[in-house]
Amino acid sequence: MKVIKIDKKDWAKGIEKIQNGYRLFGPVRGEKFHDFKALEKGESPDLDFQNTRLSPKSVVYPQTEVLFEYSLDEKEADHHVMKDAAKDYSPKAVLGIRPCDAAAFLLVKRNFDTPDYKDPYWIKSYEATTFIGLSCNNPCSTCFCTTAGSGPFNEEGLDILLVDATDCYYAKAITPKGENLLKNAGWNTEADGGAAEKIETLKKEAEAKISSSVASNQLKSKSTNELYEAPFWEDVSFACINCGTCTYLCPTCWCFDIQDENSGSSGIRMRNWDSCMFPLFTMHGTGHNPRGTKLHRVRQRFMHKLKYYVDKYDDGIQCVGCGRCIRACPVNIDIRRVCDMMNSYDPKACACSEK
């Protein structure tokens, strides 16, 4: 894989060039946080950040997305007919995505792109996107990516890995899409012979800064029913207020709702992010709700990410260790603690202690 050296003074020039062929998205500093936004002409991403408040999953999977349009006016020949809403699937690029967030798209892909079901909106948007990752030289204190199947220099899901080496960036092309973007940007300077060693040194230094971890090695062998009935769920869910912050911030949450909205004789059908934390999420038309309490909803969130997903795919947990839910939870519910409790749960030991 080719590695080139980008002098920071040439960075903005390259961004300006690729804006001619790509819609660009990148981290932009707001009043208090960085978030991924569409970049205007001449605007460069602000790469001086640890991680964004929201994950960049909305670049591929918008929080609200119009799917169909229709007319209720019976004077029109095609009234009450659903028509595809206009979409823009022209090439786009995400600049400065953290490796954990890029890896999250591969987990989410398992929901939207399967042998049995293919979501055309998600797939077309994802395939139109080039992911330029930014290595995480200084992880947050709540990051546990190295034990969640990712890492601060992880390359899975990326087309380019960008490494900040203080006075320059090293750009490692991982896929043909990445090579094409670098070519369009005009950053053609070959990296010096010691680039690989410098990148490896920075990688080891970043990984050494991660002190947080999760244990998930026993989850696969645990009985689903025994974990479901574990006594600790009351304690885990006690403080939860079902605000949904954890699911909206999470790069691997994919749940959505579909709604119709009418205005006069015209209407749209759209899908919006939804959350298993919300009481209406599983409300049946009969009024029955199989997850009618917050204990049910909190348990569902963790069982899905840490047990059901593990059993179905046998390829790690449905979490990349970004730590957003830990930092933002208003009542300090910590997925690391819950994962460790599930991983070490022994119903026999609990039964003995109760005696």
Rank of each mutant, 00 (worst) to 15 (best):
Y169A: 08
F131C: 07
L162G: 13
T189S: 03
N154C: 08
L202C: 01
C143E: 05
F131L: 15
G194Q: 14
D192Y: 04
E207L: 10
K183M: 01
C145Q: 10
L162V: 02
L161E: 04
A128G: 08
G178E: 13
N188A: 11
N188F: 00
S213L: 06
C136D: 13
I132F: 03
C143V: 02
L161T: 07
G193V: 07
N184C: 04
I199N: 00
E179S: 11
A208R: 15
S135Q: 11
C145D: 10
P152A: 09
S212H: 04
T189F: 01
I132C: 11
C143G: 08
A148R: 01
F144A: 06
N154R: 12
I160L: 12
C140N: 08
L202Q: 15
L162H: 01
G178R: 00
G149H: 11
S135D: 07
W187E: 10
C136R: 15
T146W: 08
E190S: 03
L162P: 15
A195G: 09
T175E: 01
A128E: 07
T147I: 09
C136I: 00
A206M: 13
F153Y: 15
G157T: 01
N188I: 02
I160E: 12
C140G: 09
N138K: 14
A185G: 11
A173C: 01
G151K: 14
T129P: 11
W187R: 07
E155K: 14
N184E: 14
W187P: 00
C145E: 02
F153M: 14
C168Y: 15
L161N: 13
L182E: 06
C140K: 13
S150W: 12
K198N: 10
T130G: 04
S141A: 15
C136V: 02
I174S: 09
G157D: 09
K177H: 03
S135A: 15
T189Y: 00
A185L: 02
P152N: 12
K183W: 07
I174R: 12
Y169N: 09
G193F: 08
A196C: 04
T129Q: 10
V163K: 02
Y169P: 05
T201W: 06
E156N: 09
Y170V: 11
G133R: 04
G194V: 07
P139G: 10
D192P: 07
G194F: 08
D167K: 14
T130K: 12
D164L: 04
K198H: 12
L158K: 14
T147G: 08
